[in-house]
Design a protein around this nucleic acid. Structure first.
Ligand SMILES: [Mn+2]
Ligand SMILES: [Mn+2]
Ligand SMILES: [Zn+2]
Ligand SMILES: [Zn+2]
Lengths: 126, 126
DNA sequence: GTTGTTATTGCATCAAAGTTGCATTAATTT
DNA sequence: AAATTAATGCAACTTTGATGCAATAACAAC
């Protein structure tokens, strides 16, 4: 699993993620690429890019899945323990380059965490 | 909005939440109460209980909605800024009575946060 | 207790976000 | 250039939840 062939569709998505540090929801990507590729293709490429360690995904408070470029991940190791920020006004969502302290909980093993901050972004504040 | 009439179905759900400190997913509740009430009714009562401030909801990493009893909330004020823990083995999910420090982010206003810890619960560890 | 009002429920139907099976197409290998 | 097989498109499906509407049942007024 993972990307094996560099198709036109794969290139399109990779380029999109490399453009900015923004995160994109699956829904948004399907709509934005509607004319270039099928929705099934979008989701399958996202899955492969994630397997490869090129992007990571997370779930927002509405249950939607978001995707963003990884920083220092590989197919063998996904190191994406950072919070995300979602603007409840414009929807723009980004990765936050912050360390979050994972609280240790007695008698439980914590493997991963999803931390989503919801608020108003810089643009929407002014 | 909010509960107005104490129906049998409402009583059933309230009792369920008062039994333990566990969280329940909508899917689980619909299935568990399948013989007592319609799934539409389950979701509508959950909505009303949340409006009332009796329960709160959050979204897990699979996009499912979970519900749990509130501690000190009212219809006017929902104070549920606490993390949740989900066992990836048995699925059991609970509220954690921990303070989480909401990081302040320059130029952004943070209103709320969802913090989900994923790991293995006490029972599944042993 | 009976009657009237309207919140609540059940049922059918719909909607959105993905997922799956399968035939076709197009990268990549030989 | 031909063969191989990963990737794609399309249609159909699944799951979670929401909605419209007629029937029912709380609750208030008498
Ligand atoms: Mn991220
Ligand atoms: Mn909780
Ligand atoms: Zn914004
Ligand atoms: Zn467990």
């Amino acid at each position: 699993m993972g990307i094996i062939r560099k198709t036109k569709s794969v290139e399109t998505l990779i380029q999109l993620f490399n453009q900015g540090e923004e995160a994109y929801s699956g829904v948004y990507l399907v709509d934005r690429l509607r004319k270039k590729m099928n929705k099934t293709t979008v989701y399958r490429i996202l899955e492969r890019l994630e397997d490869e360690g090129m992007i990571h995904s997370f779930t927002d408070n509405d249950g939607l899945t978001w995707y963003a470029k990884c920083n220092g991940c590989s197919s063998s190791h996904h190191a994406d323990l950072h919070p995300h920020f979602k603007c409840r006004n414009c929807g723009k969502t980004v990765c936050l380059n912050l360390d979050i302290a994972i609280p240790s909980i007695p008698n439980r093993k914590v493997d991963s965490a999803e931390f989503l901050l919801i608020g108003v972004c810089e643009k929407c504040l002014t």
